[in-house]
Design a binder for these strands. Structure first.
Length: 890
RNA sequence: GCCGAGGUGGCGGAAUGGCAGACGCAGCGGUCUUAAACACCGCAGGGGGCAACCCCGUGAGGGUUCGAGUCCCUCCCUCGGCACCA
């Protein structure tokens, strides 16, 4: 049992041992389940979505993956979120606070393979556990709106949406590589282990395999996704999304291949560059190892080297490949390209720092003006030709590093569209050189022309010859949604030998996952072996065909689930458009910052795509977003069962009660920060709630440990004490309200502690008989109600009972109003600095003039001493008289 | 490596460019108790001094300012993300 919370003597004490106070002690286990049951009975948290009489407030928190049981991290997001909902209810809003489960995903399959249990059984059992755990939190979830994504009534609409996307050209199929294990099939990133990249299950060497897979065309919305107007999202998230999308303006330039013994030449090689003005400085070309023309262009005597390099590149992660300070590697393929502006023959290399997924998968290398190209050229002894130089400098002075305009780094970023540093080319911010400081050199007809003019001029010339055009490229790629797995939404397509990929007709949805599944101890998709699932008649020609066995990425599920909460049972469409129009965008979304780019960008994409399909009118899913931090294990690592660092909330609830756990999580630190879990300090919060209990139920009691107990604080008469109590109460109300609005829970709790400490000092005095005290207790309970719903409900009900008033839940009371008059002060303390160092403090009347204040300041002994014989240069009255600083000369 | 966030007492943290360390935890002293636990009251950044008081102090180094934890530059460290974990 925890300190101060439940002790045996509160329940068993009798005449043998006199407890300190006859008042009942705070025992959360006796009150929390009682109120949870009562709230359910009253359906206190079931929103009436048709209620037009109050402002709507859609409060959404990221739904959870049912991984087994809740850990303290789940509570860390949910308790403040619940406090937001409760606060808004008290503000008079119609709050909709739904919850659900993100039920498809890899862990269920891993468990299934390992333990030979059906993923559905595993998942549903976990959901049952987590539901019951969630109840102990006493949160205001509306369970009538629950969504579970592995239910056919949900995933059928994933399929339906996929078919609409297909119709509108937003879904397509293309070949792309996956990590592949010969025994276990496609592997997720987390299933590839070690530097040698082996399969986590069988240890086999992981290969790349090319598979035809389904994509969603997120890039169609790239520009619109850069526009954050109308939503109130944290700047860091907007910056991360903007950089993730990575819009770059540049040019596509067509080089051609030079004739060689093994190749007739004349093939087009397109490159994307943000620096067409440096075209004359291209001294070699680099293709990504996976570029489609590599095999064709490679000279016979280079084949062995090139193939070995391509194979090695496939083994590396993109993160490795893009590391800028890594030693540059690459191999020549024994072919040349021809520069369209000057006919120069330049050698073609492949190198892994060029990615097949960005731009055209090929770059023109300009070592004089790009750091990576410079490093590569230096390693391989390739020529470096300077083509940009400050006006009147020597153009042929050798470079010791790439000459890149540093002003590019100062380009504004993040809040809107921008062109920033790219994966492979550093962009000069053309706007930064509007003065024409930089000119072209070694560039034929362009010598002496400002780089800014050449940038556009060279592109225009190329365009005229059909050899180039201005182009925009994004770092953002289309969304690969195919997963070679069982436990997901089956992609509703049939492959027919005659008709190709045929969509499943809408009336045949849902394509159900087979109930029985046999993994045979392998990770390979069991749908591939399930004849009953596989064999199907072609919807178009009726001939024998084969079902698509890929399932959809679970991020599809989470890309529209908040729409579904509004009509979870709807069976003639995915969403109730009218309801969606009324209730979205979501007013407040809360969840982890680890979703900054993927889930939060996919959700925005889906909303825009669904708008264009005519399903919803909104363009953005979430009006306001907050990303809380992550609670790590006590060891500072992410909580996971395998590390054994998971903190179970049930244990804490059993010991301290849900209210204490909720409040402690809020008190730990700033909500967006998170940090390692440590239970040290939870006792302080428990003590705080015990004090609140005592203040509310036993105000007349005295503390034998405090000799001054029952007396007013020294120097305070009754009138002063009344003012003091009232001022403390209303100041707390003002600050707590602001802190809740700003989600500053830790300081909110601190201010409630401060108020309770103040009130505690008046226990046993006559003050507790007065209206000021009564108001203080009332406001303290109301302020605490959103965060600690059970204890406040209990104390509220006893308060009403004591007055003979009928019971009404504290959670339907109105949030109180601050009385500004109570807070006004007569005097204030002014710190006095000499040369910025604190030397004295004085207390002065609030309305004092600067002249009067200065007179008092200058007469103070400490000030006089600090000034000595120095000369006062000036006196600064800062912040409207908040501080005085005396500046000395010499 | 790139993008984003952060670094303040023994610990969690507080501080619209204006008194660094609110509020807690741990610690120390005390009250209550036969005693202990609980509870309560008080002390408490580091160094020096009997004291008044003085000096130092917000990852490191520079800068802007009357004044910097806060703004700017360089660097170091930690955390999140990097497209098949969710």
């Amino acid at each position: 049992m925890g300190p101060a919370v439940t002790t045996s003597d509160s329940t068993t004490s009798d005449g043998a041992r006199e407890p300190r106070s006859r008042a009942e002690r705070y025992d959360p286990s006796a009150i929390e389940p009682k109120w949870q049951a009562r709230w359910d009975e009253l359906r206190l948290y079931e929103a009436d979505l048709d209620d037009e009489s109050r402002p709507r407030f859609y409060l959404l928190t990221m739904y959870d993956y049912p991984s087994g049981s809740l850990h303290i991290g789940h509570w860390y997001v949910k308790t403040p979120t619940d406090a937001i909902g409760r606060y808004h209810r008290m503000r008079g809003d119609n709050v909709f606070q739904p919850i659900g489960f993100d039920a498809f995903g890899l862990p269920a399959e891993n468990a299934a393979i390992k333990n030979r249990i059906n993923p559905r059984d595993w998942t549903m059992a976990n959901i049952a556990t987590m539901r019951s755990q969630l109840r102990t939190m006493g949160a205001g979830w509306d369970w009538t709106a629950e969504v579970v994504t592995c239910d056919p009534s949900y995933y059928r609409w994933n399929q339906w949406l996929f078919l609409r996307f297909l119709e509108h050209g937003l879904a397509y199929r293309a070949v792309s590589p996956v990590d592949w294990c010969p025994n276990d099939g496609t592997l997720a990133r987390e299933q590839v282990e070690g530097a040698d990249r082996h399969c986590w299950r069988c240890g086999a060497k992981v290969e790349k395999r090319e598979l035809a897979q389904w994509y969603l065309r997120t890039t169609r919305y790239a520009d619109e996704l850069l526009d954050f107007s109308g939503i109130d999202w944290p700047e860091p998230i907007r910056i991360q999304q903007t950089n993730w999308i990575g819009r770059s303006t540049g040019a596509e330039i067509v080089f051609s291949t030079a004739p060689a013994a093994h190749h007739p030449g004349g093939s087009e090689l397109r490159v994307f560059t943000t620096r067409p003005d440096t075209l004359y400085g291209a001294t070699f070309m680099v293709l990504a190892p996976e570029h489609p023309l590599v095999a064709e262009l490679t000279a016979p005597d280079r084949t062995a080297d090139v193939e070995a390099y391509v194979k090695a590149a496939a083994d590396k992660t993109e993160i490795d490949r893009l590391s800028a300070d890594r030693e540059k590697t690459g191999v020549p393929i024994g072919a040349d390209a021809i520069n369209p502006v000057n006919g120069a023959r330049i050698p073609i290399f492949i190198a892994d720092y060029v990615l097949g997924t960005y731009g055209t998968g090929a770059i023109m290398a300009v070592p004089a003006h790009d750091e990576r190209d410079f490093a590569f050229a230096t390693t391989f002894g390739l020529p470096i030709v300077r083509v940009i130089a400050p006006r009147d400098s020597d153009p042929d002075e050798p470079l010791t590093e790439a000459f890149v305009d540093k002003a590019a780094d100062e380009a504004p970023r993040g809040t809107g569209r921008h062109d920033g540093p790219l994966g492979d080319i550093e962009l000069i911010n053309m706007g930064s050189d509007s003065a024409g400081r930089l000119v072209l050199v070694n560039s034929g007809p362009w010598d002496g022309k400002p780089a800014v003019d050449a940038w556009h001029g060279i592109v225009a010339d190329l365009a005229e010859r059909g050899l180039g055009r201005q182009a925009v490229t994004y770092r953002l790629r289309d969304w690969l949604v195919s997963r070679q797995r069982y436990w997901g939404t089956p992609i509703p397509v049939v492959h027919c030998p005659i008709d190709g990929a045929v969509p499943v007709p809408e009336e045949d949805l849902p394509v159900l996952l087979p109930d029985t599944v046999d993994y045979r101890g392998s990770g390979e998709n069991p749908l591939n072996r399930d004849d009953a699932f596989l064999n199907v008649a072609c919807p178009r020609c009726g001939g024998p065909a084969r079902r698509e066995t890929d399932t959809l990425d679970t991020f599809i599920d989470s890309s529209w689930y908040w729409f579904r909460y509004l009509s979870p049972g709807k069976d003639d469409g995915p969403v109730d458009s009218e309801m969606v129009h009324r209730w979205t965008p979501v007013n407040q979304y809360t969840g982890g910052a680890e979703h900054a780019v993927m889930h939060l960008l996919y959700s925005r994409f889906f909303t825009k795509a669904m708008r264009d399909l005519g399903l919803v009118d909104e363009s953005e899913p979430f009006r306001r977003l907050f990303n809380q931090g992550q609670i790590l294990g006590a060891d500072g690592e992410r909580m996971s069962k395998s590390r054994g660092n998971v903190q179970d909330p049930d244990e804490l609830v059993a010991r301290y009660g849900a209210d204490t756990v909720r409040l402690y999580l809020m008190f730990m630190g700033p909500w967006d920060q998170g940090g390692p879990w440590s239970p040290t300090g939870i006792g302080g919060v428990a003590r705080f709630l015990s004090r609140v209990w005592t203040i509310a139920l036993d105000p007349a009691g005295r503390e034998p440990g405090d000799p001054a107990s029952g007396e007013l604080p020294e120097g305070e008469d009754e009138a002063a004490a009344r003012d003091h109590v009232r001022a403390a109460t209303h100041r707390a109300l003002r600050d707590v309200t602001e802190d809740i609005e700003g989600f500053r829970w830790n300081t909110m709790v601190a201010k409630l502690m401060e108020l309770s400490n103040t009130l505690f000092r008046y226990r046993g005095t006559a003050i507790t008989e007065l209206p000021e005290w009564d108001e203080a207790v009332r406001l303290l309970l109301l302020m605490l109600a959103p965060s600690a719903p059970h204890i406040t409900e209990e104390l509220w009900s006893r308060r009403l009972a004591a007055r003979g008033e009928p019971w009404e839940s504290i959670h339907v009371q109105r949030w109180p109003e601050v009385d500004e008059r109570a807070i006004v002060e007569q005097t204030r303390e002014v710190p006095i600095q000499v040369n910025g160092k604190l030397r004295d403090r004085i207390t002065v009347p609030v309305g004092i003039s600067e002249i009067e204040l200065e007179q008092i300041v200058m007469s103070r002994d400490k000030v006089v001493a600090a000034i000595g014989d120095a000369h006062v240069a000036r006196v600064i009255h800062a912040g409207g008289g908040r501080l005085v600083n005396i500046v000395l000369r010499g």
